[in-house]
């Protein structure tokens, strides 16, 4: 992949997330922050996918999205879902979910099945990344809070 393609992807990931911020009715003051998360998760995905494959990319990208979501939620005093959902949008396998259903219906069930499994594993890796990161983040921040209270 050349640098120009990557640059276009970063820009469109940002504007695409901005579009979804409007569609999902995110507060205007959070638009930029939420959309930046989308660029971040896509950058982490590209790096990890380049190093060790798409599924590792999905896991790492989702970890980045969830971590970003939790940190921003702390800063903005808002639910973490807002930032995590918007940040994971470039990763979410919507296109491959569609392509799999499309192949199933248009005479190439084998390709459809393969894409379907890819979509499923991809989404599972993303979910694992989000769940693991959220649990670790909350456990750690709880420990930190408890330590602060003791002092």
């Amino acid at each position: 992949m050349d640098i120009q393609t990557i640059l276009i992807q970063f820009i469109t990931a940002f504007t695409g997330c901005l579009g979804f911020s409007i569609v999902f009715h995110v507060r205007k003051s959070q638009w930029a922050a939420a959309s930046t998360g989308g660029v971040l998760s896509w950058a982490v995905y590209l790096a990890a996918a380049h190093a060790s494959g798409d599924y590792a990319g999905a896991f790492a990208g989702a970890c980045a999205a969830a971590l970003y979501g939790e940190v921003m939620a702390h800063r903005e005093h808002a639910p973490s879902t807002i930032f995590t959902v918007i940040a994971s949008i470039p990763l979410v396998p919507g296109a491959s979910l569609y392509r799999s259903a499309d192949s199933m219906m248009n005479g190439s069930p084998d390709a459809g099945r393969q894409l379907g499994i890819y979509t499923l594993v991809f989404a599972a890796c993303m979910s694992a990344g989000i769940v693991v990161t959220t649990l670790i983040f909350r456990a750690v921040s709880k420990k930190i809070r408890e330590r602060k209270q003791k002092q």
Binding site: V85, S88, I89, V92, P93, A95, L120, A124, I130
Partner: peptide, 10 residues
């Protein structure tokens, strides 16, 4: 396309 819903379901 319910990409977010699909990921959230898992």
């Amino acid at each position: 396309i319910p990409g977010v819903a699909f990921t959230n379901s898992i």
